[in-house]
């Protein structure tokens, strides 16, 4: 079964990459953003399973994005693999440092403290006039190991790049969930003391999860910056974090695949809502979220497991 889902996931990503040139270009740009954000959501799921709601994940998202933008502004380096790597490392370092503080808190305290951290970065960026303050600045187009695509080809190339990162991240996170550290997520949520008695430091485990989710958010931000070609401080504002929490609720923390499906669905619903009711599109999103909570409290991902259960019960002798 596990081997099965890995193969299935790999096939899904490969199929998406293969049909991408046939899809309309607007859908490609929408999906690029959706999947870049899905990486952040994937990081959120890791913490979510432990019972932690980070309301400041935009901090790492913005650091990844600004790292890419700053390299483009002050150095001649344009290689996408290198800049995304720097973005991920920068976000990871920040996550490691603030982890010493954050890992000691739970529940609302954790949520609010992480929110505060992202708002500190927001405040600093807004006050930095050389970086365009709230207007932000342009991100230089990347090159792919020396190849510099233009226009539509560039968007397609970025989409493939995002897909590649997503596929690797999905596989690694699924692997992590099956490891000992990963399996201890639910127990931490249910009874921390018991986990401590197993001889595991819960704080260190949460610290690790924070770094992993920070790195994922950093990669997401770096890819989003490359796709949008513009960064601004709003990337670290709390509404951005709220958006990620929203998608996580929609997707549910049950499976890795849900992060990608949920994020794509969210972008599609939002885009359709903006088209249908330009002034009240938030209303549709809010309603969708409320309905999800009421009827699918475990998120969209739980639909699959429910079906699977029903199928098993049906075929059981």
């Amino acid at each position: 079964m596990r081997m099965g889902s890995t193969v299935l996931g790999a096939l899904a990503f490969a199929a998406l990459a293969a049909i991408a040139p046939l899809l309309p270009p607007w859908l490609i740009s929408l999906a690029t953003i959706a999947f870049a954000n899905a990486l952040v959501v994937l990081g959120l799921i890791i913490l979510w399973r432990t019972g932690l709601v980070p309301f400041g994940q935009a901090l790492f998202y913005a650091i990844g994005a600004y790292a890419v933008a700053l390299i483009g502004r002050y150095t001649p380096i344009r290689d996408v693999f290198f800049v995304v790597f720097v973005g991920a490392v920068a976000a990871g370092i920040v996550a490691y440092l603030i982890g010493f503080l954050l890992a000691r808190y739970r529940e609302i305290f954790f949520a609010m403290l992480s929110l505060a951290m992202s708002m500190i970065l927001y405040g600093i960026l807004v006050k930095t006039e050389t970086l365009g303050s709230t207007d932000g600045f342009h991100v230089e187009a990347g090159s792919f190991l020396g190849w510099r695509p233009q226009g539509g080809t560039r968007n397609l190339a970025i989409f493939w790049l995002v897909l590649a990162y997503c596929a690797i991240a999905a596989w690694l996170v699924a692997y992590y969930f099956r490891s000992v550290a990963g399996s201890l997520t639910h127990p931490i949520r249910d009874n921390e003391i018991r986990v401590e008695f197993l001889g595991v430091s819960v704080d260190r485990l949460i610290h690790l999860k924070l770094v992993v989710s920070g790195v994922l958010a950093g990669i997401g931000g770096a890819l989003a910056a490359l796709a949008v070609q513009h960064v601004d401080p709003a990337m670290s504002y709390w509404t951005t974090s709220g958006g990620f929490v929203f998608v996580t609720i929609l997707a549910g923390a049950g499976s890795v695949a849900a992060a990608f499906v949920g994020s794509l669905l969210f972008e599609l619903v939002r885009s359709i809502a903006v088209t249908l009711v330009p002034g009240e599109w938030q209303m549709i999103l809010g309603t969708a979220l409320l309905l999800t909570i009421l009827f699918l409290p475990e998120g969209l991902g739980s639909l699959v497991s429910r079906l699977r259960q029903r199928w098993r019960r049906g075929t059981a002798p």
Partner: peptide, 18 residues
Amino acid sequence: FHGTFVFALAAGLTFGSV
């Protein structure tokens, strides 16, 4: 805690747009 938090977020998003 999750539930309340999530509900507050949803309610905020919905009524904010009204």
